[in-house]
Computed example of a mutant assay.
Amino acid sequence: MEKKIEETLKNNELALHSLVIFRRASNAISRQEVQTIKKHHLTVAQFGVMEALYNKGNLRIQDLIDKLLSTSGNMTVVIRNMIRDGYIFKVADEKDKRSYLIGLTPAGRKIIERILPEHYDNIGQIFSVLSQEEQEDLVQILKKFKL
């Protein structure tokens, strides 16, 4: 069995190394990205909800879950807390009475409009270690993993 493990490891050494480097880069990017979000006293989930609503308009809860790759349980808590804090509102969807639409309140819109320029600049700074061409290459490489 040990020989099988060694053989498999040898056959996949570059792929395993690539995974380690990818995860380290992903973790470093995530740590840097959340600095702006935390500075404004939001969680990553709250920021994601506000950014999605700002860019896409009012959305059904399921659409937010799909866009943010969240679970319904987690999203329910996030939405409840954001309604409590006055960032978002929830109304019945006129097209589907079983669903609710979530939207930004004026206070939520004001906060996200204050944060987004700084957030976008932060993302630009994070990726400035790559040239424009390298960033385009990275996008094309990572798209190959989309299943």
Results as ranks from 00 to 15, higher is better:
residue 67 K to E: 11
residue 127 F to H: 05
residue 115 I to P: 02
residue 49 V to W: 10
residue 34 V to M: 11
residue 102 I to N: 04
residue 128 S to C: 02
residue 61 I to H: 11
residue 122 N to C: 06
residue 44 V to I: 09
residue 91 V to I: 15
residue 124 G to S: 14
residue 122 N to T: 03
residue 93 D to R: 00
residue 43 T to H: 11
residue 147 L to C: 07
residue 87 Y to Q: 08
residue 102 I to C: 10
residue 85 D to R: 10
residue 123 I to S: 00
residue 110 K to D: 12
residue 78 V to W: 00
residue 51 E to N: 08
residue 122 N to R: 15
residue 142 L to H: 00
residue 135 Q to G: 09
residue 40 H to I: 07
residue 105 T to A: 11
residue 95 K to L: 03
residue 59 L to E: 11
residue 62 Q to E: 04
residue 40 H to K: 01
residue 73 G to T: 14
residue 147 L to Y: 13
residue 126 I to R: 03
residue 52 A to T: 09
residue 90 K to N: 07
residue 123 I to K: 00
residue 69 L to I: 12
residue 143 K to I: 04
residue 47 F to E: 14
residue 125 Q to C: 02
residue 43 T to S: 13
residue 37 I to L: 09
residue 56 K to M: 13
residue 48 G to Y: 12
residue 93 D to G: 13
residue 46 Q to N: 06
residue 61 I to K: 12
residue 126 I to Q: 02
residue 100 Y to Q: 08
residue 63 D to W: 06
residue 147 L to P: 10
residue 146 K to F: 13
residue 116 L to E: 13
residue 127 F to N: 02
residue 41 H to F: 10
residue 103 G to I: 07
residue 92 A to P: 07
residue 133 E to W: 03
residue 111 I to K: 15
residue 128 S to W: 10
residue 139 V to Q: 01
residue 118 E to C: 00
residue 33 E to P: 05
residue 89 F to P: 02
residue 97 K to V: 15
residue 109 R to W: 03
residue 51 E to K: 00
residue 126 I to Y: 12
residue 40 H to G: 01
residue 116 L to H: 04
residue 108 G to S: 05
residue 101 L to V: 06
residue 145 F to E: 08
residue 79 I to G: 01
residue 83 I to D: 11
residue 67 K to H: 09
residue 32 Q to T: 04
residue 111 I to C: 05
residue 131 S to Y: 00
residue 69 L to T: 04
residue 134 E to H: 09
residue 96 D to S: 13
residue 143 K to N: 14
residue 90 K to G: 01
residue 38 K to Y: 02
residue 33 E to S: 11
residue 39 K to N: 09
residue 76 T to R: 15
residue 83 I to K: 15
residue 47 F to V: 09
residue 96 D to Y: 01
